[in-house]
Design a binder for these strands. Structure first.
Length: 474
DNA sequence: TGAAATGTTGGGGCG
DNA sequence: ACGCCCCAACATTTC
């Protein structure tokens, strides 16, 4: 006797706990075949750092599945071709998955839905990667919020997100497993060995995510409101890549936090989950978010692409210590502290007048937590063309920001070691140090560390003039 | 989830 | 004692 198995299509939800599509498949009472499909060709295919993470996260998921009597089948190619083919080959009666907010992923779902329906295969898709499903947070008039605080206030007035589903104890498998490529065959690992900084920093997979959450709840949550802006401290949860890959669900995080005593830290942290929600809400409402400015007057913004400036930014050689520290932390670890992300983004977009899409692309390639909605919404926010955006005149001063949020220069010294010998007063502005101080620190500007590639005061005025130019049409 | 320019206030030095 | 100036500290406005 054969029983038609159920395929569970895993996407950026690489976990077993709180996974409604997996739970539904198990509850259907037939054999379950978990599948991941790598489509490297589509728009916004994972960047290099993300591919490293994905490799390890898939390995962790496969191990978790094997511990429950199951396996992970991996496939290469277009989902809408590969999944129906596999469904036909194993005689599957049903396919389940969790929705994604990305427009091209929604398109894929629609095509898959149609093709499976034509083949007589049952489909069940679920929300589950958001606290509040995109489209459900609406104003009184039914409008779509464009201001974060209004959005979040409305979200918090809704019924609380459901309790997370427990992980399955055992997952029934089919009599025979379909053959397919191995994880290594997917070619996700970089060909040259540049990933050591990533491996030193992260443990991809649900277990790593849950450890990170537990550590944050114990050591970070209470002080979060005060410490989250301090890149020189471990003040943030560092959960972003785990959330981006769905190794832990936002509902798991939400309920773990709300089980703790209320605190300013908890409230502020939940608000950051709110920004993640807001980004997805925006992407759903404005599918062009990753490519097009939300405020269309920015279509005629006089950007000034500057390959040399971009190159210096990318490599952490701008001569502004906090900017360079951030860009080097990104390159080394695949991650950057959020405060510093705002500083480096402001520098690229406003000081260098480089199109925000250029920064968005670089972050997409280098961040292990690269998430289309958050990345696009955040770059637009910094550039001033997004929802609830920083006004055009808000230009970060990298010296002021550095001295405010890294007052002892610990963060700069960690990531820009050639400045480590400078005294605190000079570490964020080495070009103002006296020759004697520089000599004592072993710093020669222009040789051991770059002189600033631009003068921030001048650049600021240039940016204000450029933003002024698009303010009023005609 | 800025920063700089400009305005105001008040303490203290000084003639 | 008093007015004047300087300037730090803070507040407001402007970009």
């Amino acid at each position: 006797m054969t029983t038609a198995p159920t395929l569970v299509w895993f996407r950026r939800d690489l976990r077993l706990a709180d996974h409604p599509a997996l739970t539904a498949a198990i509850n259907a009472g037939r054999p379950v075949i978990p599948v991941f499909v790598l489509d490297g060709r589509g728009p916004w295919a994972p960047g290099a750092a993300s591919r490293w993470w994905l490799h390890h996260s898939l390995a962790a998921l496969a191990a978790d599945l094997e511990a429950r009597g199951s396996r992970l089948v991996v496939l290469r190619g277009a989902v809408e071709e590969e999944l129906p083919r596999l469904a036909a080959a194993v005689g599957a009666g049903m396919v389940t998955w969790l929705h994604r907010p990305e427009p091209h992923e929604r398109d894929r779902e629609a095509r898959l839905e149609r093709d499976l329906a034509a083949a007589g295969v049952e489909r069940r898709a679920f929300a589950g990667d958001e606290l509040f499903e995109p489209g459900t947070v609406r104003g009184r008039e039914g409008g779509s919020f464009q201001v974060f605080t209004a959005f979040w206030r409305a979200a918090l007035a809704l019924p609380a997100p459901p309790e997370p589903l427990p992980p399955p104890y055992r997952i029934p498998g089919p009599a025979g497993w379909p053959a397919g490529p191995s994880l290594a065959d997917l070619g996700l690992m970089p060909r040259i060995d540049w990933w050591h900084g990533l491996a030193d920093t992260w443990h991809p997979g649900a277990a790593g995510a849950e450890r990170r959450l537990a550590a944050f709840l114990d050591d970070g949550l209470e002080a979060y409101a005060a410490m989250r802006d301090r890149p020189d401290a471990l003040g943030t949860s560092m959960l972003s890549p785990h959330l981006a890959w769905g190794e832990i669900s936002p509902r798991q995080v939400w309920h773990a936090v709300t089980r703790k005593p209320p605190s300013a830290g908890a409230e502020t942290f939940l608000k950051e989950l709110g920004w993640r929600e807001f980004s997805r809400h925006l992407l759903s409402a404005f599918p062009g978010l990753p490519e097009q400015p939300l405020r269309r007057e920015f279509d005629r913004f006089p950007w000034r692409p500057d390959p040399d400036g971009f190159d210096a930014w990318r490599r952490g050689l701008t001569g502004y210590p906090i900017v360079d520290a951030g860009m080097r932390q990104l390159w080394h670890t695949g991650w950057m502290h959020n405060r510093v992300r705002m500083i480096v983004a402001s520098f690229l977009v406003k000081d260098l007048l480089t199109p925000w899409r250029t920064g968005e692309d670089w972050f997409w390639d280098t961040l292990v937590d690269a998430d289309l909605a958050a990345n696009a919404a955040s770059w637009q926010w910094v550039a001033g063309c997004g929802a609830d955006a920083a006004p055009y005149f808000r230009v970060f001063n990298p010296v002021v920001q550095g001295e405010k949020f890294d007052p002892r220069g610990r963060y700069v010294r960690r990531w820009v070691p050639e400045l480590a010998g400078l005294p605190d007063l000079a570490v964020h502005r080495p070009w103002e140090a006296t020759p004697l101080v520089l000599r004592d620190a072993g710093v020669t500007l222009g040789r051991t560390y770059p002189a600033p590639i631009l003068d921030h005061g001048t650049a600021r005025k240039r940016a204000l003039a450029a933003f002024q130019a698009i303010r009023d049409p005609g």
